[in-house]
Design a binder for these strands. Sequence first.
DNA 1: TAAACATATGAACAATCATTCATATGAATG
DNA 2: CATTCATATGAATGATTGTTCATATGTTTA
Lengths: 121, 121
Amino acid sequence: MNKIDLNAECCDCNEVHEDLLKIVNETMPEENELYDLAELFKVFGDSTRIRILFVLFEAEVCVCDLAEVLNMTQSAISHQLQILKQNKLVKSRREGKSIFYSLADDHVRTIIAQGQEHIEE
Amino acid sequence: MNKIDLNAECCDCNEVHEDLLKIVNETMPEENELYDLAELFKVFGDSTRIRILFVLFEAEVCVCDLAEVLNMTQSAISHQLQILKQNKLVKSRREGKSIFYSLADDHVRTIIAQGQEHIEE
DNA sequence: TAAACATATGAACAATCATTCATATGAATG
DNA sequence: CATTCATATGAATGATTGTTCATATGTTTA
């Protein structure tokens, strides 16, 4: 595998081609992992979902409280909660008529904290 | 703490309203910071850009090599590089006709590593 | 068990986005 | 200085997505 391409059809920086292909083939995650990674970050790429997460950083909250605090419709919040739940960023628990949502794990905090560090520079 | 909100206009979980509002108002970032955060994660939310970043984890690479290694058109790669650059995830350097791209800082690695940890569980 | 309440969900619509195509810019080369 | 090479970019297009609206599901209560 990874044979030398002497007829590099690209730019003149020929020296790197072989090594680059080799290294990339070794370190690049599988196609479906790349897809999952992008999917995960897509979930963080919406300010409504980010705001939901910031609320859940502080407390376990039911849907209607989330909607009230964030000043959005119950339906919009519920739709976004489903997306957060599908991606295992939040979990839910029923208590009577209400359903309470909370953070699923602490990666969420870490990822968002890293994002904040990045934009604050 | 956790005072009761007697005028809760929402669901029956009245006790939390006041405190929740207070805490959220204290800890929720400003509107534009939330927007910037979401924008940043949106950049990670595309597998082409993720793949570009994985290549740049290993080496400083010119545009045509990126296009070749990732098997995509020069134009598509260039468009995505502009987005990565605007969000300060990569930087560029001209050398003759070529332009070499590299990671702008190490938050990129940390954020993606956290994402990988999350999906591998 | 009917009504009220809390949440979920499907369809529709507008907005956003990634890629393609054509072309422009900018540097090296002969 | 015209051509070639490497990259950037604007417009167009098809695909994806967040919100709304209407309605369904599931739980409590009278």
